[in-house]
Write a protein that binds this DNA or RNA. Structure first.
Lengths: 234, 234
DNA sequence: AAATTAAATCTGGTTAACCAAATCAAATAG
DNA sequence: CTATTTGATTTGGTTAACCAGATTTAATTT
């Protein structure tokens, strides 16, 4: 018990501590899927932390599908065995903050897929939203203005057109981190944005013409510079 | 204001209501990156909801990188313009719960990539963990036992070996949903698990031999049945 | 003794009071 | 008039009291 070392502001540390304690509890008590965890109050008492800290930790494990809270009843181990539970909790505890390179790598992967799927599945409504985003982007760039936001919205429109809400969510989650890093590293220069108009137009046309191969190819072209950059930094 | 329609348990509705209100506020007041939002108390007062509801909504927007809370100071608009803010908030509000088909589609995409990267980057320690997971899986299957968990841990070990923490996180997030759906739809039958041993071994060997092309190919084989299933249901 | 009911207790969720740091305003010193 | 200090206020975060529903226990009735 090294809790006294942890300062108040280091919330993450407390949460990880509680999560590891819950893992140990599940192991020691051989809790199986469907079994009930001790109440939040008794846990906060046992671990010598506040109940709200316990709640946050439980909510995080609930987000990853490992626990399930039922009001006025209790918190239950999800339909997942003790082995997988251990493996996943260890992974969750080990999760580092992704670096920029990893983010870009993931983004390109997702974009290649969403563009291909969008070419196969886009509706007319999807197409309309993509066109609007594209026009807004072009206008900004041609007027010499910053167009990072419009660029982003175009790509999110593609993700939406992919018809895969799971992919759409993942794109949404990594997008903000991408933006802040773009601005920090000054990735998007003026020249890039100008050539970007044609590249966006090419992607749009491929999706409009329902040509998945070309859509993927054009996205690859669009990210080529970025790819090189990504593998050069740090 | 249609709040009286919303029952207490429909927390999601309340949260989405608050999020849309915050979006309107940002638009109406022309809040730009770095600007401060009204305090949680005044927001809860203005929207006629509890402060904890406001906090949850803010935390969700913080998760997507749109807001940033600073203790004893305030909540601030992230380094993202009003246009992108609107687009992303609309996307967040529209996000449906992903269907199983979308999940499997995403999983295969991620697995193909992580296997390829793992072949390129795996360390000896990664290899060791993968081998342990593989052996645990084989033993269970050969003894005629259920091995869903061990299967999962093998794939998570690959994700870890990819050296991309971003991809690793995404895999972790979609995994629990996959498992529950697998069990619900009875995807993994006994016969499948038996042939799975060789398939896992092939993937492992490709990664061990640092052959990214073969690794990707073997994963594709492994998911072939699943792919067909995925495109047949519902 | 079994079935039913009623009361007491536990549960996660919610609300409100409290905290300490940060901010702002005014007063004071130079 | 400027710079500094001091005190009051505002902030997000934390804690504790409270709530309603679920669960368990005990009492009552048949």
């Amino acid at each position: 018990m090294k809790l006294e070392v942890i300062s108040k502001s280091e919330n993450k540390e407390v949460q990880n501590f509680i999560i590891s304690q819950i893992r140990d509890l599940i192991n020691y008590k051989n809790l199986e899927p469907g079994d009930k965890l001790p109440s939040e109050r008794s846990l906060s008492d046992k671990f010598s932390v506040s109940r709200s800290n316990v709640r946050e930790a439980i909510q995080k494990l609930e987000f990853y599908g490992l626990l399930k809270s039922i009001p006025q009843s209790g918190t239950f181990v999800a339909n997942i065995g003790v082995i997988a539970m251990n493996g996943m909790i260890d992974d969750i505890l080990r999760l580092e903050k992704p670096d920029f390179k990893a983010l870009v790598e993931t983004r390109i992967l997702l974009e290649l897929k969403t563009a291909r799927l969008a070419a196969l599945r886009r509706t007319d409504e999807d197409l309309k939203q993509m066109r609007e985003a594209l026009e807004a982007y072009s206008e900004k760039v041609l007027n010499g203005k910053d167009a990072v936001q419009e660029d982003l919205l175009f790509h999110l429109a593609i993700a939406k057109a992919s018809g895969n809400s799971s992919l759409n969510t993942l794109m949404l989650m990594i997008t903000p981190e991408i933006i802040t890093n773009f601005e920090k590293h000054h990735v998007c220069d003026k020249g890039m944005a100008r050539s970007g108009i044609q590249e966006h137009q090419d992607i749009f046309n491929a999706i409009k013409n329902q040509n998945p191969v070309e859509a993927k190819e054009k996205v690859k072209v669009h990210f080529k510079m970025l790819y090189q950059y990504c593998y050069n930094i740090e």
